[in-house]
Design a protein around this nucleic acid. Structure first.
Lengths: 153, 153
DNA sequence: TTAAGTGCAAAAGCTTTGCGGGTAG
DNA sequence: CTACCCGCAAAGCTTTTGCACTTAA
């Protein structure tokens, strides 16, 4: 994501905060910035590492709380993946995930056909769909190469 | 899932174990049985509770390890959802998930249109897709009713 | 027989909570 | 000014690990 785009996201944060009566603190701004620069579905831990240099002394608690707040505001979203750690997704536009069942990596993928998916009627379940995401599960390049190397020995 | 179906799954376990040189222990059988009876995407904790009465003294460690093994064997799969705890999915046939962003519940949904989804070419990423799943994200009936009740007060 | 699997206890993460003090609006 | 937010420390959960013992094949 380029600098201008990140700038726009920070402005979005300010706007959304005002709308919801939440504060746009330097911590939240810095944490959003760091998450945007990291890009690829960082864990809270990774974000913490990235924020520390630009905001020395920030606490891990704050990172957790800020990410939760940002997700609540809809500025980022919680990512869904197999495994234990919560991961965050900084892209808000519709996109999908390649999930490696071996190393738990997540890769973004954009595809018009996937976007055009027809969401079925879920009113029978009383369920209100707000969003959808396609998970393509399998093995990533790195893990495949690893496996091949092990087989050849 | 009815008794006959569960029986078939236990036989599947035996078969797959033999193929892969893994043992079909009473623990693994009991843990699979418990997971099948629970049905709805149980956490390791829930499975542990369900196994205990039928296999007193089983350790939580074993439940974790057995679920991991069962997933490795492909007898169950790890579910992917937003939130921290690992969840397991006992249905192996193609199906999709309604995910409540509020309470993290997962509901199964079957839909031919979703099943017919065209998996895009991911060879450019070096990624080999083995499986896919559509996540429809939103708010479940219960959480919606909760919200409505709170608003009216 | 014997390698894979299990139980126990303890450690290792990841995440949340309570509280006093700080600060954006 | 004051309600919201932060940092700290400590607790709470889930999950993993090391090791000696057991057991399925």
């Amino acid at each position: 994501m380029d600098k201008a785009a990140r700038q726009r996201r920070l402005e979005q944060l300010g706007r959304v905060c005002r709308e919801r009566g939440m504060r746009c603190t330097i911590q939240r701004r810095a944490i959003l910035e760091a998450a945007l620069e990291l890009g690829n579905h960082p864990s809270a831990e990774r974000v913490y590492e990235a924020v520390t240099p630009r905001l020395p002394g920030v606490s891990k608690t704050t990172v957790y709380r800020a990410l939760e707040s940002l997700a609540l505001l809809g500025v980022i979203t919680k990512a869904c993946h197999p495994g234990a750690v919560a991961r965050y997704d900084c892209r808000t536009e519709l996109h999908h995930h390649l999930i490696c069942l071996h190393c738990d990596s997540i890769f973004d993928i954009s595809d018009e056909q996937l976007d055009a998916l027809v969401v079925p009627d879920t009113s029978g379940y009383g369920f209100e769909v707000t969003d959808f995401k396609v998970q393509l599960r399998g093995i990533c390049r790195r893990c495949r190469e690893h496996e091949r190397r092990e087989e050849s020995t």
